[in-house]
Amino acid sequence: MTLRARHAIECAEVIVGYDTYLELIRDLLPGKTTIGTGMMQEVDRCQAAVEQAMDGKQVAVISSGDPGVYGMAGLVLELVAKYPLPVQPEVSVVPGISAVGAAASILGAPLMHDFAVISLSDLLTPWEVIQKRVEMAAAGDFVIAIYNPKSTRRTTQIETVREIVLQHRGAETPVGIVQHASRPKEKMTISTLDKFTSEHIDMFSLVIIGNSQTYVVDGKMVTPRGYQL
C-alpha cells in the first residue's frame, strides 16, 4: 500500500470493497461505515459507493494491489459517467502497488524488458481470446506475467499456457511463482517452463514466465535490458 492510498482510506467516511480485502485493512476501519460484498458482486458494491458519494460522503473503494490494474477504478468511472455532469461526484484514482510489481521485486528483476500481463480468468473474457493473447505474447518474446493462474474450477488453463509458450522458448526458461506477494504468507519459488505447473499455484499466486534471455543468478530472476557490462 502506498502512503497516499493509506491516507485516502484514513480520510474516508465510507469504505467499500470485497469482504476479503476489507479484512486485510481491518486495523484502518474503526469508526468508519463499511460496505462489503462477496465475489461476483462488483457492480453492486461500486454502485453503492457512488450512491454514498452522491449523498455527500467521502468514499474509498478499495482493491487489492493497484485499483487500475484488474481493480475497481474503471467500473467506478463508468458508473459515475451515467450521472449528469453537474451532480457527478469527483473521482480520484489512487495508485497502489500492483501484484505484478510486488511479485517481480520478490523474484529479482524479471521485468527489466518488455512484458505482457494476462489474466487467465475467463469470467469476463472468452478463453479463446486469452489463448490468443498468450500465443502472441509468447511469439513476441515478451516476459509474461499471469494473474489468476489457477482456481478450484480452472485447473487446466495454466497447463495450456505452458504448452503454448514451450512452442516459442526453451524448456529451461525461468518461471517465478509468488504467493501472497507483500503479505504475511508470502512465498517465492523459481522453476522452469517445463516443470513450473507441478508447483503449488492458486488464485493468490502470480506467475512470471521469463523471455528467451531471462536467467537466474544467486536465486534471483534477471531479464537483461541489454546494457554492456
Rank of each mutant, 00 (worst) to 15 (best):
Q228G: 03
R26V: 05
E78I: 02
A49D: 08
I164H: 06
Y215L: 01
L193D: 02
T37Y: 13
A49Q: 14
V178I: 08
S64F: 08
Q47I: 12
S92A: 13
E135P: 12
F204M: 13
V87K: 11
M136T: 12
M221P: 11
I35C: 12
P67E: 01
I190A: 07
Q179A: 10
S64D: 10
T34H: 02
R162I: 01
F115A: 02
Y147L: 10
E23D: 14
T33I: 13
E13T: 12
I190Y: 06
D141P: 07
V161N: 01
E135A: 15
P84E: 13
K187M: 03
A73R: 10
L107P: 11
S105F: 01
P126L: 08
Y215M: 04
P84G: 10
K185I: 00
Y147E: 06
S119T: 11
T160C: 00
T152H: 13
M136L: 14
P67G: 05
I144V: 13
G65K: 01
Q58Y: 00
K82N: 11
E135Y: 15
A104P: 11
L24V: 09
A48K: 14
L206D: 01
M54D: 01
Y21H: 13
T192N: 14
I130W: 07
D55C: 14
I15F: 09
P95R: 05
T214S: 15
A181R: 07
A137C: 13
V50D: 01
V93P: 14
I15D: 04
T33N: 08
D141A: 12
P126T: 08
S63I: 02
K185Q: 12
E78S: 14
P149W: 02
S64G: 10
D27F: 03
L75Q: 12
F196E: 02
E159D: 11
M1F: 08
L120G: 03
N148P: 11
G140K: 11
V178M: 04
M188K: 14
V175P: 05
H168F: 14
M203H: 09
A109W: 00
T173E: 06
G36C: 09
G38C: 08
T37D: 07
M136F: 07
A73F: 06
I208N: 04
E163K: 15
I144Q: 04
I97A: 02
M203C: 11
A171M: 10
A138H: 10
V61S: 10
V16F: 12
P89D: 03
W127D: 04
D55W: 03
